[in-house]
């Protein structure tokens, strides 16, 4: 690439793939990493998501087929999870940047439960017809645990129910199923 301007633009774009995809700035949560005992940081978007789905399992595997069908319409899955040693390691202010973005259209909150210091919020962005969601965001907050999930792409309420496990997708079992002929079976299972 001889043009330095083009190179710089490409470098900047590749450095912030998650930013470009998410409607809100998940990096605002990054500062919690220093205080967290453990963290989960997952950014799966575009081709990587499709690649992951293609390695879920064999074609005749029912669970894998359901997950593949669900993932086929998604454009990204983003997870930020933190576990803390003690209470008070994060405050509502840490979530404010995420909530502020979710308060804007087309997002609406369909679940908001505050119970014994625990919070569950589920936000959805709907299609104009209102029959499907174009995004789902979940905030799950406990005194020592905070999880923010953002799923981007077309997803139906049934898909959310499936993700909830009510219709029998057992992702734990799915994790144990490895594609036949895969040389890394044992290594992957051990991990």
């Amino acid at each position: 690439m001889k043009n330095p301007l083009l190179f710089a633009v490409a470098a900047i774009c590749s450095a912030f793939p998650a930013h470009a995809q998410t409607p809100f700035d998940l990096t605002s949560l990054d500062r919690l990493e220093a205080r967290a005992k453990s963290r989960t940081n997952i950014t799966l978007d575009g081709a990587l998501l499709k690649l992951a789905a293609s390695f879920l399992g064999a074609g005749d595997d029912k669970d894998a087929a359901q997950i593949k069908a669900l993932v086929a319409n998604l454009t990204g899955i983003y997870v930020r999870g933190f576990e803390f040693d003690k209470n008070g390691q994060y405050t509502d202010a840490d979530l404010e940047a995420v909530r502020a973005s979710l308060r804007r259209a087309p997002w609406s909150r369909i679940v908001d439960v505050h119970e014994s210091g625990e919070v569950s919020e589920i936000w959805v962005a709907q299609t104009p017809a209102g029959d499907k969601f174009t995004g789902v965001a979940i905030i799950d907050a406990e005194p020592r645990e905070l999880t923010v999930v953002y799923i981007s792409g077309v997803i139906s309420p049934d898909d959310i129910a499936r993700l909830n496990g009510r219709f029998g997708i057992n992702v734990d079992a799915l994790d144990r199923k490895i594609k036949p002929g895969n040389n890394n079976k044992k290594k992957d299972e051990e991990q």
Partner: peptide, 25 residues
């Protein structure tokens, strides 16, 4: 292949986290 396996592991973890969060809600 390794990249795909890593991505698959992340996807399963992400789906697990989502499921747990939904169940907690």
């Amino acid at each position: 292949e390794q990249r795909a396996l890593d991505a698959r592991r992340q996807l399963v973890t992400a789906l697990n986290v989502t499921r747990v969060s939904l169940q907690k809600a």
